[in-house]
Nucleic acid binder design. Structure first.
Lengths: 290, 290
DNA sequence: TGATTTCTGGAATGGCTATTCTATAGCGAA
DNA sequence: TTCGCTATAGAATAGCCATTCCAGAAATCA
C-alpha cells in the first residue's frame, strides 16, 4: 500500500476555472476519449456546468452521467458536485464581484503603453462602425431585389480584385456549400476575360470594388454586363464607374483605420446575399440541375 | 366567478433580477413578515440563491424551507426552483454570455416582415458580437509576441482553406502592399505541399482553421512546423489539432447565424497582425532585402 | 496472437430535494 | 374577549439527484 501510494503523487486538483483550462489545454492531464469529450464541453459551455444537473449536462454533452463523475475524479475531486461548486460556480461568483474592478483597471491601463493593443482596438472599432453604418443606410428593398435577381440566375459570376477579393472568395465557398453554381473571377490564372466570355443573359454577376477601383474589375464587370448578365454591384460611391452597368447597386462605406479599410460591412452584406439566394432557390426551385 | 377573477389581476412575475429588485424595493408587492425577510436576504445575497439548495438557503436566511417556496409563489412563480432559475441563475448567465443571448433573442424575434432584412440584421449582429467577444478575450501579450515573431521571419507562409481562406487572402494582399514577403497557400493549384517544403527555421507561418478543421490545413501546418517555421495559429478551441505545433495561438470564437459563422473577429485580428508586423519591420529593420 | 489493464455504458441505489400538507400560532375586527 | 382569517413551522412524501457498481468493450502490452 505504501509503495502504491508513493508511486502516485496525485497532482492537486485545479482550484479555479483558469487552472482547469490551462491543465486541459496543456495536456498536463491525459484523459481518455470520453473524458476528453467532457473536457471540451466544459470549456466550451461553462455556464451549463455551473447550473445544470449531472443528468442535464450529460444529455447536452452527449455523454453518460457517470462519465461526468469520472471526469471530476480524474481531476482529483471526490465527485462531480465538488468540481462543479469549486470551479464552475466559483468562476461565476468571482466574475460578478470583480466585474466592476476589472472595468476600472481596464480604463486606467488604456494608456498607449501597448501599441499593438491600440491597433487591435482601432480595427475592431472600424469594423463595428462600418457594420452599424451599413445597417442604417442599407436599402432593404434593393437587398430583396438583388436576392431575387441572383436566385433566378443560372450561373453567378463573382468579380473582385485586391482588397475585395476575400469577399468574393468567401461567397464562392458559401455558395458552393449551398449548392449554388458560381464562377469565381480573379484567381490569378489570367484567364478571366475568357471565363467571363461564357456569361450570358441568363446569368448574373456580383462585382465588388472600392476606390481606387481596380481597372480589371471594371473591365470584367463591363464585359459581363455587355453579354447581358444581370449585375449586382457593391461599391463605395454613387459615382463609382461600376454603377454604369448596373441597375442594382449597394453603397457600402467602410470605416478605415490607419489607412486600412475594414471589410466587415461588405462581408455581412455578402453573407446576407448568399444565404438569401439559397433560401429563395429552396422555396421556389427554378434552376436546379436546369 | 367573473367578478372574482377580475378583482385579482395577477401581476406578471418579475422576469429578471432588476425587475425583482425594483418590485421589492418599491414595495409594489406587499409581503408578510417572514417572506419580507426572505426578500431582504435574496437581494443581499443573490449568489447564495443562485447556487444553493432550498435547505441550505433556508438555513442561511434563518427561515423555514417552505417559506422560500411560498416566497416564490407569492411572486407568481409555480415553485422556488423556477424563481431560482429564471431570476438568479439567469442574472449570472447573462453577465457572461450576453452576446450569445443577443443572438438567441434575435433568432426568436421573427422581426420585420422582410425575411431578407432579418438575415441581414442577423449577420450584422453576429459580426459585432464576435468582434466584441474577441476584444474582451484576446490576450494582448500574445498579440505582441506573435507580431514580433512574424516581424522577425524571412518569409511568412499563410495557411488556410475553405471558410478561413478569405482571411489569409486578405493578409496576402495587405502584406504585399506593405512590402512584407508572404506565400499564400491554398490557392488550389495542388502544389501546396511542395511550396511548404521551402519553409525553414528562419520563416514563420500563420495557420487559420476552425471546426471542422480542414485536414489539409492541419497537414500543411504540421509540415511547416516540422521544418522549423515559427507557427502562429488562429483557431476556435484550445483543443484544436493545430495548437500542437504552435507556441503562439489565438482562440477566436465567432458567433454564428443560420449556421454561418462570422469572419469579422478573425478579420480584425488578421488586420491587426498585418499592420503590427509592418510597423515593427519599419521601426527595426532586420530582414529588408535580406 | 493472447493476456492484462483501462475505459465505457447502463442500471441500481440510497440520500437529499423541492414541494405539499396540516396543525397551530398570530393578529385584526367586532 | 372571541371569532375568522392568514401566516407559519415543521413533518411527510414522492421524485430526482449524484454516485457506485459491474459486465463487457477497447486499448495496451508482451
Amino acid at each position: 500500500m505504501g509503495r502504491l501510494a508513493s508511486s502516485l503523487p496525485p497532482p492537486p486538483p485545479p482550484k479555479d476555472f483558469d487552472d482547469l483550462r490551462d491543465a486541459l489545454v496543456e495536456r498536463r492531464v491525459k484523459l481518455p476519449k470520453r473524458l476528453e469529450q467532457v473536457a471540451r464541453f466544459a470549456i466550451a459551455h461553462p455556464e451549463e456546468i455551473a447550473f445544470g444537473t449531472v443528468a442535464s449536462i450529460a444529455e447536452k454533452a452527449e455523454v453518460q452521467p457517470s462519465a461526468l463523475v469520472r471526469f471530476a475524479q480524474a481531476l482529483g475531486y471526490p465527485g462531480f458536485s465538488d468540481l462543479q461548486r469549486t470551479v464552475f460556480q466559483g468562476r461565476l461568483r468571482e466574475k460578478v464581484t470583480s466585474y466592476d474592478e476589472r472595468l476600472a483597471a481596464l480604463r486606467d491601463s488604456t494608456g498607449p503603453s501597448n501599441r499593438t493593443a491600440a491597433l487591435f482596438g482601432g480595427f475592431c472599432t472600424a469594423a463595428t462602425a462600418s457594420i452599424e453604418r451599413l445597417r442604417e443606410s442599407l436599402d432593404l428593398d434593393t437587398l430583396d431585389e438583388a436576392a431575387r435577381v441572383l436566385a433566378r440566375a443560372e450561373t453567378i459570376y463573382l468579380i473582385a480584385q485586391r482588397r475585395s477579393y476575400p469577399v468574393t472568395a468567401y461567397m464562392s465557398y458559401a455558395f458552393a456549400k449551398l449548392g449554388v453554381k458560381t464562377v469565381l473571377i480573379g484567381s490569378g490564372l489570367g484567364t478571366d476575360p475568357e471565363t467571363i466570355g461564357f456569361a450570358g443573359p441568363r446569368d448574373a454577376a456580383i462585382a465588388i470594388s472600392f476606390t481606387p477601383y481596380a481597372a480589371t474589375t471594371i473591365a470584367l464587370a463591363r464585359a459581363a454586363a455587355d453579354r447581358g448578365a444581370k449585375m449586382v454591384v457593391v461599391t463605395d460611391s454613387p459615382f463609382s464607374p461600376l454603377i454604369a452597368d448596373s441597375a442594382i447597386w449597394f453603397e457600402v462605406v467602410e470605416a478605415d483605420f490607419r489607412g486600412f479599410r475594414s471589410l466587415a460591412a461588405a462581408m455581412s452584406l455578402a453573407m446576407t446575399l448568399t444565404v438569401a439566394v439559397a433560401d429563395l432557390r429552396r422555396s421556389e426551385p427554378q434552376h436546379d440541375g436546369k
